Simulated assay, not measured.
Amino acid sequence: MAGREQRANAITPVELRHLLEGPVSRATGMIVWTIGQRRGIEGIEPVVTGSVSIQDCRLRIQFNFQSPWHVSLTFHGNNVALRRVCVNGHDRKVPGRVHMHTYVPADGNERTVGLADFPACLPHATVEDIDFRKMFEAFAVLCNVDVGSIDWVDPPVEGVN
C-alpha cells in the first residue's frame, strides 16, 4: 500500500536493506526535545550507521500537546523518511491503531503495514500517561538501531508559552 510520495532513489534498495536488516546502527548522546510554533514537540537522536553514503541519519519522535496520543516516529536518512510509525494515526487502508510506512527507493512511495504488537497509548491519554520511551525503543528495534547507550529525557509535560 502506498503512503506519501518522497524523492525517488535517495537511497538504494541494498542500502535500505543494509540499514534495516544488516549490522546494528547505534544512537549515542542525549535525546533533545524542541517545541515548535504550533505547540508541537519533537525529540531527535542522531544515528551512526557506519555508511558514508547515507547522510544525516536520525530517529525522531513527535507529538502535539493538544493530542499527545497521536505519536509519529521517523527514521530519517539522506533527507527522506526511511521508516515511519504512526500511533493512533489515520490510514483508512490499514486497520488498527498503529501502522508502519517503509520507503520504496524506486519511486519514492511508501509501503504501509499494520503493527499489532507495537506499544501504543490510548486515545485521549495525557502526556504524563504516555510511555514515549517505550515507543521510541520499540521503534528503534524496527529500524535496527541500538539506543541502549542514549541518555533518555522525558518530554516536557506542557509547551512553553
Rank of each mutant, 00 (worst) to 15 (best):
P123F: 04
A140Y: 13
E128D: 08
R83E: 02
P119R: 05
A8E: 02
L16D: 01
M30V: 07
A2W: 09
H70D: 12
N9H: 08
N78S: 13
D91N: 15
R38G: 15
T28S: 13
T126C: 04
V157N: 10
T126F: 11
V87N: 01
H99C: 11
E128A: 13
D146T: 03
R39M: 08
K93G: 03
D107H: 07
P68G: 04
V153S: 07
R133V: 10
S25I: 03
D154C: 03
P46R: 07
T34R: 06
V127H: 07
P46W: 01
E137M: 14
S51K: 06
V87C: 05
P68W: 07
V145S: 04
V48N: 09
T28F: 03
S67H: 09
Q62T: 12
G89V: 15
K134G: 11
E5S: 05
D154V: 04
E45R: 06
V153L: 04
N64P: 00
D129T: 11
H70W: 10
T34K: 04
M135H: 12
P23L: 02
A10E: 04
H70Y: 05
C143A: 15
G89C: 12
G89M: 11
L122C: 10
N144T: 00
C143F: 02
G29E: 03
A106D: 11
W33R: 00
P68Q: 06
V153Q: 04
L142C: 15
G3A: 09
A138I: 08
S72V: 11
V98E: 01
R58F: 09
C121D: 08
C143G: 14
P13E: 00
P119D: 12
R92P: 09
M30E: 10
F139G: 08
D131S: 15
T74W: 00
I130H: 09
N88H: 10
F118E: 10
R133T: 07
A8D: 00
S72F: 10
M1H: 12
R133A: 15
A27E: 00
L20E: 01
A125D: 14
E5R: 14
I54E: 04
R84A: 06
D107S: 08
A116P: 06
E45G: 01
Q37R: 15
R26I: 05
S149K: 12
P46T: 02
W152N: 07
D117E: 13
F63C: 07
Q62G: 08
A116T: 14
E128R: 09
R111I: 10
V87E: 01
A106W: 12
Y103L: 03
C57W: 01
E158D: 06
V141H: 08
E158Q: 08
G40L: 03
L73T: 14
N144L: 09
L73M: 13
D131T: 15
N144R: 12
P46Q: 05
A120C: 13
T126W: 14
R39A: 14
D154K: 02
P13Q: 01
V147E: 00
V48M: 14
G43T: 03
I35G: 10
L19G: 09
S67Q: 08
G22I: 02
V14M: 04
H76I: 05
C143H: 05
R17Q: 10
I35N: 08
E128I: 15
T112R: 11
